[in-house]
């Protein structure tokens, strides 16, 4: 049975609306809607797509939607599901963005946001803490961490260059390891 493009768009539009607080919640949402209710994808495919989405560049929730769309209807399906998932986030941000500057002129709102900036620092710290445990697994990883940190913080080298360097570094380290 072929799933219509319109159904794909509507389904992913609805999913996009329910993604609060980041893209991570997309897996349970997709399991509920796409695996259990519609059987568009199997549980196994969902797990595979999620793993792949993390190792492909870009936003994870958008990636996993693209994978599902591609599985259902090829390139066109992937395009439609991707557009579906970003529609409601884009609309909601555009609405907020057009009023936020006006609101920020109010002294009252300014003080609310003054505190919020500090909350963002703590939320970033919590993310760093999580990443730290997962990523700094051995000495070469530590060395890379310090190189990347100093390159970025002290020398203000652009993240793009640091990421390219890290890719080469990773391949070089693993090649050396395979030899020995």
């Amino acid at each position: 049975m072929k799933v219509s493009l319109k159904d794909i768009y509507c389904e992913f539009f609805m999913l996009g609306m329910q993604l609060l607080g980041g893209g991570y919640v997309i897996v349970p949402l997709m399991r509920h809607r796409l695996t259990e209710q519609k059987s568009w994808i199997s549980e196994e495919e969902l797990v595979d797509f999620y793993a792949l989405s993390q190792s492909v560049p870009g936003v994870i929730a958008a990636n996993i939607s693209t994978f599902v769309g591609y599985k259902l209807r090829g390139k066109l399906g992937a395009f439609v599901s991707l557009m579906g998932i970003i529609t409601s986030p884009v609309i909601s941000i555009l609405i907020i963005a057009s009023v936020v500057d006006v609101l920020l002129q109010l002294k009252f709102v300014q003080t609310l946001f003054w505190g919020v900036g500090i909350a963002v620092i703590i939320l970033m710290y919590l993310t760093v803490k999580e990443m730290w445990a997962k990523s700094l697994v051995d000495i070469p990883a530590w060395i890379l961490f310090f190189i990347a940190f100093f390159a970025s913080y002290i020398f203000k080298i652009s993240p793009v260059h640091i990421i390219i360097f890290a890719m080469i570094y990773g391949i070089a380290v693993q090649k050396l390891r395979r030899k020995t």
């Binding site: 990523s135 700094l136 990883a141 890290a166 391949i171 693993q174």
Partner: peptide, 25 residues
């Protein structure tokens, strides 16, 4: 092999970049 090696290195690099922005903030 290449995908695995690149991902192995991108995690600490990504963590370092976020650390750096956090300090600037």
């Amino acid at each position: 092999f290449y995908v695995k090696s690149v991902l192995y290195a991108l995690k600490p690099a990504g963590c370092a970049l976020l650390c750096s922005v956090m300090l600037s903030f």
